[in-house]
Design a protein around this nucleic acid. Structure first.
Length: 306
DNA sequence: GCCGACC
DNA sequence: GGTCGGCAACGCTGC
DNA sequence: GCAGCG
């Protein structure tokens, strides 16, 4: 056990030799070191947001669970926000602000960090639109790459929206862009759903918006379900709870053709960041006002018949 | 990882 | 003192 | 209303 002191806060770091990822031998100490060393990159997209946790306190060989509530008996300096639930009631979520928060949550068994697409200060106001490209079982990575490019092509080529891409660290890729101006989850959800519907109508043999597995029929799912109140998506640079300890990693668009969804891991991400800057830093992607896009998107919908 | 309930 | 359960919930579709 | 899905 060691104690890490950050700005006067003591974080107990325990069981450092526990192997959390048996297949690659990554220990809790190594996971904590990864989080500590990449805290600024993690915080960029986590700071000020409610965060859901995927925890495996005894490693991937043990039980794992998804947790939305702020852990009870967390130190009082860990941020909190009372989130009204749509179904009624309130649940207190953790809010991440700094490296001490990240280290506490990691020591507590958290592997994956899933922030909201809105901040604690404006829960009803998403600041990002996100598309999750999810390939069918057993398909070649080329297919989900093609789908990812198709989403970018419509957003960037037809609507003039600059976009970002990251590996999910799991099976596919995420495409996103930041928002400005007044907006609600109802609006971002409708926008993302409209884009997905147009693409699925144009390429009905390769793309679908059907979440039901049976109806998917070998097509790539364009999942827009994250663009809704109370939903979360894995944070850029979060580790995933999968055997090789992959990391959801921002990539430049020209890397998509040679990067696989689980390419970067706790073990090799350092080397990548030693060789090149974080691709999302200074990428020139500017925030979008969805109000400017309602009419153009409606035109695309009309053409596509959806 | 940790608490509370139960044995 | 050991063991065991709990630790999520939006929006949609289809039955 | 309930189950499945991400």
């Amino acid at each position: 056990m060691t104690v890490r002191t950050v700005a006067g806060r003591d974080v107990r770091l325990t069981s450092l030799d526990r192997v959390l990822f048996p297949e690659v031998g990554v220990t809790k100490g190594e996971l904590l070191a990864y989080v500590d060393d990449h805290a600024e990159l993690l915080l960029r997209d986590l700071r000020g947001r409610p965060v859901a946790l995927k925890r495996f306190p005894s490693g991937l060989s043990g039980e794992g669970f998804f947790q939305k509530s702020r852990p009870e008996h967390a130190p009082d300096w860990l941020g909190a926000v009372d989130v009204p639930l749509r179904q009624g009631g309130v649940k207190t979520h953790a809010v991440v602000e700094d490296v001490a928060d990240l280290l506490f949550l990691t020591n507590h068994g958290t592997i994956e960090l899933h922030p909201w697409l809105s901040t604690a200060a404006a829960l009803e106001e998403p600041d990002t639109v996100l598309f999750d490209l999810d390939p069918p079982e057993g398909s070649d990575v080329a297919e989900v790459r093609w789908a990812t490019r198709a989403v970018r092509g419509l957003l960037e080529g037809e609507l003039g929206i600059a976009t970002r891409c990251k590996t999910s660290g799991s099976k596919g890729f995420h495409v996103s862009f930041p928002l400005t101006g007044p907006r609600t989850f109802e609006e971002t959800g409708a926008f993302a759903g409209g884009v997905a519907a147009v693409l699925a109508a144009r390429h009905p043999d390769r793309l679908t918006t059907e979440t039901r597995t049976a109806a998917r029929d070998g097509r790539v799912l364009i999942d827009v379900g994250r663009n809704a109140y109370g939903q979360t998506a894995v944070a850029p640079y979060s580790v995933r709870a999968r055997p090789t300890a992959p990391v959801a990693t921002p990539i430049a668009w020209d890397e998509l053709s040679r990067v696989e969804p689980r390419r970067y891991t706790v073990t090799n991400l350092r080397r990548r960041l030693g060789q090149r800057d974080d691709p999302w830093r200074g990428d020139g992607v500017s925030a979008v006002d969805l109000a400017d896009l309602a009419a153009p998107l409606e035109g695309l919908r009309r053409e596509a018949g959806v």
